[in-house]
Design a protein around this nucleic acid. Structure first.
Lengths: 351, 351
DNA sequence: TTGTAAGCGTTATCAC
DNA sequence: GTGATAACGCTTACAA
């Protein structure tokens, strides 16, 4: 692999060494490194040979200084769901493997009134090539504008199109929720509860719209008492479960805006001795590890977050990635969620 | 906050601007930045004032070039458990918040025979101040040696002391497992099953030793049929559960080497109609989100992974972190795990 | 205690 | 097409 073995503390060869060996100027070597078009095949070959021979690797720090840009991608996030963040991270890392890029992780504080200043300071300091914004902060338009202003490329992840295709990878949450809920209706469910995500989250709104769309399509209603608030966390699921399942006429199915809350609802059902899915069907969203770990395994909407990470990186820095399959040629950058059937859904109990 | 507002594309002030304004040489400014001791309070104050006034922030790229070192911490990991990685990440980020450091994430491939070369290339290229090694790759001594050779500081995370205190943050897995299992014994359990972690993982070995220690202390045996292999993943928990709970004389309690496998065992119990904890007690390890999401909530050993992240960062780069509480003064860098009681443990059923 | 000069390893400018 | 030469913004000698 290594063309040249150096001692552990051996000095790295520099562009000067390469230039000397190849008998050209350092600028020419620089041109080769940066794939300039104006080069004789002959000189290029000579330089490449020297590079190979010396095992030369351009120093990223020096390049960063000269370019005024670091060869880094920054991942900005403020996501309550650890699994989501990590899966996305893995996707990005998959994509930039074998490239010269590295991944910088930066959690931010959505609530802070210094958010913009913080991010600005971070970007001005690290000067990454680009930034990846995960929801919910990806929904903040000011952040996108900031990136633009600072000359930092950006791609936002969302549950719906929140920017043009060059700047946004999104999923079709609404559609998939609607489809999942229609499935419930087709099984015969008429009283279907809904546990919402946090106010202010676009994803929560999208999922609710999908839910209401499906009900409306079946001429069903969503009475207020079947609509529970939530915040994407387990305790909210518990509360929602308590509320919904204590009703005089409880729902026969509950759609939860994410898996954690679904786990909460399911715990309440177990506690009350309500059989899942026999007496109560439950659907979640995310397909997090929780979905398979709970019993019975949760039917849920799989959000292709890892694929979104890959696509996000490809969209952000196509020019830095080694040539690879062009994907499915889909430039819309809308990745499809899928419904994952497990064991938490069944027809409603007979009357 | 910002002492000075510049237009979005305004040039950043450089060390020269500061020097000019303060009426000193750039080297003196450099000294102030780097907290040199040999400075008059007067000059220091003057320079600091100029820095403040200009809103000067040293350019990390330039410093990196001159220092031959980037102001980064690299997180090297190859951990199957996403939650662990992310919690650790958060700990590290907590610690380096408000410092000049940033966090680089680098997953590696434990199985690859190019592991060492890959890491070497990465470190030579990014030149981080230091590297944090998460288990299981933290158990690889060659990696530590490599860091040493490259002049990259390192700290390894382990389930047991695997290096000297300056290079290792560890937990007391063995002790805590022993304690948890003794609790089971005290409740009256005599047939206790064990689900092991993957072969080759130090953590798996430690936990097994703790388990055996507790049994031995109570003069109990671990018959072969109560010992199930595993790999820290859910399906292994399922398999182990099937095996253990199909026994002619099944265990009344099962210790699982992590929460995921515990979730698997619990699912099997539910499927077989075995009441938890009435007929079967289950204990896990990690205190991952899964532990609270499943029903009944899992009693488990909480591995203080986030705190370990904080401590790891403090140990790795104490000189870069803003002055803070010295911690508990414990320099042993052994962080205590704790047993978290939830609802999955009870006395064995009466005969 | 402070300043001067010479890098650090690359890219940009602008001639040739 | 290619090559001097000057940045890029900071630090490390070494001198004062």
């Amino acid at each position: 692999m290594a063309a040249q073995t150096r001692g552990p503390r051996g000095k790295q060869p520099t562009i000067n060494d390469v230039a000397a060996l190849a008998g050209v100027s350092k600028k020419t070597v620089s041109r080769v490194i940066n794939r300039s078009e104006f080069l004789t095949d002959k000189t290029r070959t000579a330089v490449e040979k020297a590079i190979e021979q010396l095992g030369f690797v351009p120093n990223p720090q020096a390049r960063a200084l000269a370019f005024r840009r670091n060869f880094l991608i920054a991942l900005l996030h403020d996501n309550p769901n650890a699994q989501t963040v990590l899966n996305f991270q893995h996707g990005v890392l998959d994509a930039i493997r074998d490239s010269d890029l590295a991944l910088l992780v930066r959690p931010v504080d959505r609530g802070s009134d210094r958010l913009l200043d913080d991010v600005r300071a971070f970007l001005e300091k690290q000067r990454p090539i680009g930034a990846l914004l995960l929801p919910p902060i990806s929904e903040n338009d000011d952040l996108a504008t900031l990136c633009e202003d600072l000359g930092v490329r950006y791609v936002r992840i969302g549950s719906a199109r929140i920017d043009d295709a060059k700047h946004c990878i999104s999923s079709n949450d609404r559609e998939m929720v609607a489809e999942a809920v229609r499935g419930l209706v087709e099984l015969g469910h008429r009283r279907i509860g809904f546990v919402r995500g946090p106010v202010g989250f676009r994803s929560a709104a999208e999922r609710e719209e999908g839910f209401r769309e499906a009900l409306a399509g079946a001429a069903l209603e969503l009475p207020d008492d079947l609509h529970a608030p939530g915040d994407y966390c387990y305790p909210a699921g518990i509360e929602a479960g308590e509320a919904l399942l204590s009703l005089a006429e409880p729902p026969t199915a509950i759609f939860c805006s994410n898996d954690e809350m679904a786990a909460g609802v399911m715990s309440v059902a177990h506690g009350k001795g309500i059989r899942v899915p026999g007496e109560l069907s439950i659907i979640g969203f995310d397909d997090s590890p929780t979905a398979t770990h709970i019993w019975p395994a949760l039917s849920t909407v799989r959000w292709p977050i890892r694929e979104m990470g890959i696509r996000a990186a490809q969209t952000l820095v196509p020019d830095f990635l080694s040539p690879r399959i062009e994907g499915d040629g889909d430039k819309s950058n809308i990745l499809a969620s899928t419904f994952v059937e497990r064991q938490s859904v069944a027809p409603p109990p007979d009357r």
